[in-house]
Amino acid sequence: MASYVALLRGVNVGGVRLAMADLRSAVADCGHTDVATYVQSGNVVLTASGRRSPVRLAAEIRAAIAARAGIEPRVVVLRAAEWDDLVDGNPYPHVTYGTRLHAVVAQELFTDAQRRAALEIAERVREGGSRDELTIRGRVAYLHLPDGMGRSVLAEKLGRSRASGHQDATARNWRTVLALQEMLHR
C-alpha cells in the first residue's frame, strides 16, 4: 500500500464547481482507500494498492471525476516520498507565513526551456520593482510572494505564460503543503 497526494487544478474557482464529497467518491471508485480531502480546492490524500505510477493515477482520477461530475480538471499526483522531498526542498525556509510561500507543482519535470522562460519572467518582474522570488527545483516552482498571491505580478505572468509550463501545473500555499504532508503521514 502506498500513499499519494493528488492536486486538482482550477476546481471551485472561476465557476468550475466540484463538491469534495464527489471528489472523495470518485477517487474511492478507482479502488483507492483512506481517501481524504483538504479544504475545497481539490487536494486529496489516498492509499493505492500496489505500486502505480503517479501519471497513471492522475489519468484514472481525472477520468473518474469526469464520469461522476462532468468536468476534467488537470490532476497532478505525487508519491508521499516525493511530497516529502518537495517540503524538504524549500529554498525559502525563513518564510514562516504560510500564504506568502507557494509551491507550483507539475506532473513532469519543468524542461530547460520552461525553466528559462520562467526565470526570464521573474527577472523582468524584479527589474520592475517586485520583491517576488522564484526558484525551480525539478517539477516544483517555489514562489516567495512577500505581498501575497493576489498582488503578485510574478504569479500572474507565470500563470499566463505557456512557455513557462505553469499553465499545466497547480499552485498550493505553504500552509496547504504542510497540512497535506501531515495527512500523508497519519
Rank of each mutant, 00 (worst) to 15 (best):
A2D: 13
A2M: 15
S3I: 10
L8H: 08
G10K: 15
G14W: 06
G14T: 07
G15I: 08
G15D: 10
V16W: 05
A28W: 06
H32D: 04
T33P: 02
T33N: 10
D34M: 13
D34C: 13
V35N: 11
A36T: 14
T37C: 10
Y38I: 09
V39F: 13
V39G: 13
Q40L: 15
Q40Y: 12
Q40N: 15
S41P: 14
G42R: 05
L46V: 12
T47C: 14
A48P: 04
S49A: 15
S49H: 13
G50Y: 03
R51C: 07
R52Q: 08
S53P: 00
V55S: 09
R56T: 14
A59G: 10
E60Q: 03
E60N: 06
I61S: 07
I61L: 09
I61P: 03
A64K: 00
A64E: 04
A64R: 01
A67F: 04
A67I: 00
R68A: 03
R68I: 05
A69Y: 09
A69N: 10
E72Y: 01
E72P: 02
E72S: 12
R74I: 14
V75N: 01
A80N: 12
A80E: 11
A81Q: 14
A81L: 13
E82G: 13
D84Q: 15
D84Y: 08
D85Y: 04
L86M: 06
L86F: 06
P91M: 09
Y92K: 00
Y92I: 01
P93N: 06
Y97H: 11
G98Q: 01
R100S: 01
R100T: 03
R100L: 06
Q107T: 08
Q107A: 11
F110L: 00
R115D: 03
R115S: 07
R116S: 10
A117F: 13
A118D: 07
E120H: 13
I121T: 14
R126H: 00
G128C: 01
S130C: 09
S130E: 11
L134H: 05
R137F: 08
G138R: 04
A141F: 06
A141P: 09
Y142R: 04
Y142S: 02
L143K: 09
L143V: 02
H144L: 07
H144V: 03
L145F: 02
D147S: 09
G148A: 09
R151A: 15
R151P: 12
R151S: 15
L154D: 05
K157S: 11
L158H: 12
L158M: 14
G159K: 15
S161C: 12
S164W: 06
S164V: 06
S164M: 09
S164T: 11
G165R: 10
H166T: 15
D168A: 11
A171F: 03
R172K: 05
N173K: 01
N173M: 01
W174T: 03
W174K: 03
L178F: 01
L178Q: 05
A179Y: 11
L180D: 05
L180I: 05
Q181W: 12
E182H: 15
L184P: 11
R186G: 15
